[in-house]
């Protein structure tokens, strides 16, 4: 309960902070539309040569793109900024200030930042998703929506755990700020359903970097591809990754000696 309140007040501060820089909203909007535009160009180029890619048609892939944009926005709004700040603080030794606070350290370092304007991606992603679903002639189905929302939530938890594990390596390697670039590169793979990748890469994108669960699985739920088996697998992996992240973080924290501060 205390944790929730803590997260909520940081959320509020983050929102208020962002409102100081309203012009950034327009820049963010432009960025969102450029990303969307280049994504659409790619999609159209592919579908000017073929009518189906790995069993997905154009409208279904548009739905994948919607989910991709949405989830990417969520990650950049709530997960990535926190992890980047953590990385910086480990290197600078200023993590001391966070560790002395009377709250769970992992929770605390995970909720401090929130980039409101990144949520333009979430809104635009939802619109793209809506357009795709109407092209598919989709009818509201409670189970599909529940599957979608739960898959999205599990995907977010998995991506968070992945980020925390990789960020925690900063306790040993110090200079790891290229991780953001690494993750963005790998996350971009989620623009396409993971079914099209060769096996070794598909496993990597499913279990190492949980891109498949963050994008393909939620999109599968909406396009009637999600099986109970996959859903249960996702649940198991979510719990597993979350526990691993907790363990790696704790071991890393023992290694932290506070560079200066």
């Amino acid at each position: 309960m205390h944790g929730l309140r803590l997260a909520f007040s940081h959320l509020r501060i983050g929102v208020m902070n962002e409102f100081q820089y309203r012009a950034n909203l327009y820049i963010q909007l432009l960025q969102t539309f450029i990303a969307l535009g280049t994504g659409l160009v790619g999609l159209n180029l592919v579908f000017s040569q073929t009518t189906d890619l790995g069993g997905w048609n154009k409208a279904e892939l548009l739905a994948v793109m919607g989910v991709f944009t949405m989830t990417g926005g969520l990650i950049r709004a709530a997960i990535q900024p926190n992890m980047e700040r953590l990385m910086e603080e480990i290197r600078e030794g200023t993590l001391d200030y966070a560790l002395t606070k009377p709250a769970d350290a992992q929770l605390f370092v995970s909720v401090r930042e929130f980039r409101l304007w990144q949520n333009t991606d979430v809104v635009v992603g939802l619109i793209v998703l809506g357009v795709a679903l109407s092209q598919l002639g989709w009818l509201l189905d409670v189970w599909a929506v529940l599957g979608f929302l739960s898959a999205l939530f599990m995907g977010a938890v998995m991506v968070y755990s992945f980020w925390l594990i990789v960020t925690s390596t900063a306790f040993w390697f110090v200079r790891v700020n290229e991780i953001a670039n690494l993750f963005e590169g790998l996350y971009a793979a989620g623009r396409w359903p993971v079914d099209i990748y060769p096996n070794w890469l598909r496993y990597g994108l499913t279990f190492l970097v949980p891109v498949a669960f963050a994008v393909t699985v939620p999109a599968s739920a909406l396009t009637g591809r999600l099986t109970l088996q996959t859903w249960l697998g996702a649940l198991a992996l979510t719990v597993f990754l979350f526990v691993v992240a907790r363990v790696v973080w704790s071991i890393g924290l023992k290694n932290y000696s506070g560079a200066s501060a």
Binding site: V46, G185, A189, I196
Partner: peptide, 17 residues
């Protein structure tokens, strides 16, 4: 890390095409 992040992009294009 930097290079692997970078390599992901062409691998995606390569696989799709």
């Amino acid at each position: 890390f930097y290079m692997i992040g970078m390599v992901a992009e062409p691998v995606i294009y390569m696989v799709v095409w």
